[in-house]
C-alpha cells in the first residue's frame, strides 16, 4: 500500500511537470511576426571605440563652477534628492582632491589651489570594469562604444556591483524615487525602488547626436570624444597635458581623465 501510494504521487508529479513542456516549447518556438521589421541606430548616433571625458580641473575654481553641471545631469535624468543621507543618489558630484584620488594621493602639502579645487567624480566607464564582472545577470554590461550601461529592467538589486566598484560611483534606490523628484524630465524615465543606477555618459543623448549634458554645461572645460581617435579633442587634450586618472593601480582603466 505504502509503496503504491508513493508511486502514484511520483507519477502525479511527473505528469504535472510534463504538462509544462508544451507551453515552454511553444514559447521558445514562437514566430515573432511574419514580415521582418528592421532594427537599427538613428542617423545622428555618435560613435566611438571608447568614449572618454577629459576634465580640465584648472578651470573649475569653486562650487559655483561645478554646480550647474551637476544640476544639468541630475535634472534631465530625474535623479531624486533625499533629505535622508542614507538614501542618497548621485550620478556626478564634486569632492576634494584627497577624496577623489584617495589611495594614490598624499594629503600633505598640496598645491594650495589644487587642495581647494572641486573635483568632479562620476562613473569612469572603466575599460576593464569590475562592476560588469560582478553583476550576476548582466544588468550591468559594457557596450561596444565603451559605455558601462545599466539595464534597469533586469537588475535584481543584489548590489554586488556597488561592492565591486572601487570609485563609489553607484547608487541604490532604497525606496521609490518618484515622490522625491522636484522636477521631472518627461522625456526620460525615472527608476523604481530596488535597482542600482549610475551615470551612463548620457547614452540617450549620444543616440541623438548630442554630447553628454555635463559636457555641454561645462562650456568647453570638459572634452569628450573617442579615446582611440587621434583627431578627437579628448585624445588631443590627453596628449598635450599631464593627466591623472583615479586609482589606476587597480587596473580598471578609468575613462575619465583629469588635467590638474
Amino acid at each position: 500500500m505504502d509503496i503504491r501510494r508513493r508511486r502514484i504521487l511520483q507519477l502525479l508529479g511527473l505528469s504535472a511537470a510534463a504538462l509544462t513542456v508544451k507551453p515552454v516549447y511553444d514559447a521558445l518556438a514562437a514566430d515573432p511576426g511574419a514580415a521582418r521589421p528592421k532594427l537599427g541606430p538613428g542617423r545622428e548616433q555618435l560613435r566611438a571605440k571608447q568614449w572618454v571625458m577629459v576634465i580640465d580641473t584648472r578651470r573649475f575654481a569653486s562650487e559655483a563652477d561645478v554646480e550647474p553641471l551637476i544640476e544639468a545631469c541630475h535634472r534631465i535624468h530625474n535623479v531624486p534628492r533625499f533629505e535622508l543621507k542614507r538614501w542618497e543618489i548621485k550620478w556626478i558630484w564634486a569632492t576634494e582632491y584627497k577624496h577623489a584620488f584617495s589611495g594614490t594621493s598624499s594629503d600633505r602639502f598640496l598645491a594650495a589651489a589644487v587642495e581647494k579645487r572641486p573635483f568632479l567624480v562620476l562613473c569612469n566607464q572603466c575599460e576593464n570594469p569590475p562592476c560588469v564582472r560582478a553583476c550576476p545577470t548582466q544588468a550591468t554590461f559594457k557596450r561596444e562604444d565603451g559605455i558601462v550601461m545599466m539595464d534597469f529592467h533586469r537588475c535584481i538589486g543584489c548590489r554586488f556591483c556597488m561592492a565591486a566598484c572601487p570609485f563609489g560611483a553607484r547608487s541604490f534606490n532604497y525606496t521609490d524615487p518618484r515622490p522625491y523628484l522636484k522636477h521631472t524630465n518627461k522625456l526620460f524615465p525615472t527608476r523604481m525602488k530596488g535597482v542600482v543606477e549610475k551615470c551612463s555618459f548620457c547614452a540617450e543623448r549620444l543616440a541623438e547626436g548630442k554630447r553628454p549634458a555635463c559636457v555641454e554645461a561645462a562650456g568647453g572645460k570638459i572634452a569628450f570624444g573617442d579615446l582611440y581617435d587621434p583627431s578627437s579633442e579628448a585624445h588631443q587634450w590627453i596628449r598635450k597635458n599631464y593627466t591623472l586618472r583615479r586609482k589606476v593601480n587597480l587596473g580598471t582603466e578609468p575613462a575619465v581623465y583629469y588635467i590638474v
Binding site: 564582472r133 550576476p136 545577470t137 535584481i156 530596488g194
Partner: peptide, 28 residues
C-alpha cells in the same frame, strides 16, 4: 539572500542569463 534583493521577483534572472564571470552566479 532573497530578503536582501531589491527586486526579489526577478531573482530567476540569475538563471535566465547565466553569467559565469559573476561569483554570485556560482554562489547560487
Amino acid at each position: 539572500i532573497l530578503v536582501d534583493l531589491g527586486q526579489p521577483m526577478r531573482v530567476l534572472n540569475v538563471l535566465l542569463y547565466p553569467t559565469p564571470h559573476s561569483v554570485l552566479f556560482w554562489d547560487t
